Simulated assay, not measured.
Amino acid sequence: MDKKLMDLLDMALAERFGLASMDMQKENSESDKSIKKLVDMSQEIENHPGIREDARELIREFLLADSENNADLQKYLYIQGAKDCVLILREIGVIK
């Protein structure tokens, strides 16, 4: 795929993920608690006096890499889910 098409796909997926996240938060009060817990823990790590600055930077890098990996996984699963949906609809004769 060319770069412009990939950029458009990334933008569309980011928008879908954002909308899905908002829907999840509306439907599941536990997700708000989970997000708040993650934010609180992140701030606690960031401000913890027992963590040396080099270790703190390593933690930041790890969390960023983990977040990027998670975003890639979400994108993959979303696209795979769409492919699976089309496949199932074809198999049951809803679409050709």
Rank of each mutant, 00 (worst) to 15 (best):
L8A: 15
L8G: 14
L9M: 15
L9P: 08
L9E: 14
M11Q: 15
M11A: 15
L13W: 07
A14T: 15
E15T: 14
R16G: 11
R16P: 07
F17S: 12
G18K: 05
G18L: 06
L19C: 03
L19F: 06
L19I: 12
L19H: 07
A20R: 11
S21E: 08
M22N: 04
M22P: 02
M22W: 03
D23M: 08
D23Y: 09
D23S: 05
D23G: 01
M24A: 12
Q25I: 09
Q25W: 01
E27A: 12
E27I: 04
E27Y: 04
S29W: 03
S29K: 11
S31L: 01
S31M: 05
S31R: 03
K33V: 06
K33W: 02
K33E: 11
K36H: 08
K37P: 04
K37W: 11
L38H: 04
V39T: 06
D40M: 13
M41G: 10
S42E: 09
Q43D: 12
E44I: 14
E44H: 15
I45A: 13
I45Y: 11
E46D: 13
N47A: 09
N47G: 10
N47H: 13
N47Q: 14
H48W: 07
H48V: 05
H48T: 03
P49V: 01
P49I: 01
G50A: 13
G50W: 00
I51E: 00
I51S: 02
I51C: 02
E53L: 00
E53I: 00
E53N: 00
A55S: 13
A55K: 14
E57P: 02
E57N: 09
E57M: 11
L58C: 13
I59F: 08
I59H: 03
I59A: 04
R60C: 00
E61M: 09
E61K: 10
E61I: 07
F62M: 05
F62D: 05
L63H: 11
L64T: 14
L64N: 13
L64A: 15
A65F: 07
A65C: 04
A65R: 13
D66M: 09
D66G: 08
S67V: 07
S67E: 06
E68G: 05
N69K: 15
N70K: 12
N70Q: 12
N70R: 12
A71D: 10
L73T: 09
Q74P: 01
Q74K: 13
K75C: 07
K75W: 06
Y76V: 07
L77G: 04
L77F: 02
L77K: 04
Y78P: 00
Y78E: 11
I79W: 01
I79M: 08
I79S: 02
Q80C: 00
Q80R: 05
K83A: 05
K83T: 04
K83P: 00
D84E: 06
D84W: 00
D84A: 05
